[in-house]
Nucleic acid binder design. Structure first.
Lengths: 229, 229
DNA sequence: ACAAAAGTGTTAATATTACACCCATGA
DNA sequence: TCATGGGTGTAATATTAACACTTTTGT
């Protein structure tokens, strides 16, 4: 009966790793200022308010933590966690959401974001509560959905190159893909991307064609990760 | 703060439709004996107890409603629904689970199952609360997971034929599949099924080889439904 | 023998993979 | 001109799709 309900966010983005030129998958974490788990890193989140639906609460938390406007990101429910002792303060059930964002030009600038930071998912600190598990589930969901949905574009800005999409796949799957075949696959799968009719400039090499997200919800045929090998 | 938390079950099975020989997808519904929505059909479910984890509560409800033992079925979390006015009695958040069962030889024989019945998902009555939405999400989840997991075998008894698996796919996807190609696909995908070394008998036509579930968690390559057409 | 269901063979179309090679730019 | 990515061509392989045909049973 007397449950508390929270939403927790697994906010993922692709950021250039410290030394390498390649991007890698990062997650937004906040440092807890109060017990329990004081000082530990945790997923951002908070209580669901009395009048709020679950997606509303997730949107609100996401806006509070990142300041991104509603259109420029993907947000979906991930799973719900409610083990009796997952929070020492009482019976708290948390509904986790997965958010995918482009690499923000301005760093995280939310209200209580003083202690918020991006962490490479390959080098995580210890997390509070059962957040390590939730995060692992979120990463696995992202990996799986790249196969059969055009979700990779949610990590990209409104206009992007095929190489940008490839960088997303390589960062999330953690393995290199053939640029030539990837290009063909992305441009030939119906509804994945739409050409803008412009090209990039300024960088080295041949300028790349710019694309926008297409209207497909699923990729057919899918873009399968190579067998585990 | 003061939330109530329930679990609701989308219990699916394949049953022979009234007149046709082919099986079709059915869902377990219970008729509500008390307000709200008295007399309406609803998904089985109930409150999560103080000491219970979410999967435990789902297992308990499933056992209460169907009496199936733990091993012979698939049970996974589906999604969580918590709109402020989804239950007129107060703020109730429900964690929905999806269960897949073989067609039970003995009909539903649970404790409070006097008013429980299987319904063809193609001919549903009006449902209580937001259960129509939850059920639709469950059916869609099942449809999608048949593509890239060996979950179809969860609808089959411990030993089954390839034709039995095909009947599952045809019922869930609602379209016929080529028996010859399907047979090859199922028997050649690693870990999907294991031959038992016995054959069926008694029916018409050539006896079919019997199989058990394999140990694969995902199908590679997947078994994609034909493009929407 | 015949109908019915199981299962194999074969071929064409489609998709994936590997990699040679050309294109367009900055330095 | 060279280095650097962007992008196309092409051939080998793998997978899917369509369907003829054989196998093994009950009647």
């Amino acid at each position: 009966m007397g449950f508390q309900v929270t939403v927790d966010l697994v906010v993922l983005t692709i950021r250039s790793a410290r030394q390498t030129a390649r991007g890698s998958l990062h997650v937004l974490l906040v440092r807890r200022g109060i017990p329990p788990y004081q000082g530990r890193w945790a997923l951002p989140g908070g209580f669901v308010l009395d009048h709020e639906d679950l997606p509303e609460a997730a949107e609100r938390e996401l806006a509070e933590e990142t300041g991104v406007d509603g259109a420029a990101r993907h947000l979906e429910q991930l799973a719900t966690y409610g083990a009796p002792r997952r929070d020492p303060r009482g019976r708290v059930v948390t509904v986790a959401y997965l958010a995918l964002l482009p690499d923000l030009p301005s760093p995280v600038a939310g209200t209580d974001a003083a202690a918020a930071a991006w962490h490479d998912v390959a080098a995580l600190p210890r997390l509070a509560f059962d957040h390590a598990r939730i995060l692992a589930d979120g990463v696995e969901r992202a990996r799986a959905k790249l196969e059969y949905t055009p979700l990779a574009t949610a990590f990209c800005p409104p206009e992007f190159t095929v190489a940008g999409v490839r960088e997303v796949y390589e960062a999330v799957w953690g393995r290199p893909l053939d640029p030539r075949n990837f290009h063909r696959k992305v441009t030939s799968t119906p509804g994945f991307v739409e050409p803008v009719g412009q090209r990039t400039g300024g960088s080295r090499g041949r300028p790349a064609e710019l694309y926008r997200r297409g209207d497909a919800v699923t990729l057919y045929p899918p873009l399968l990760r190579p067998a585990s090998s």
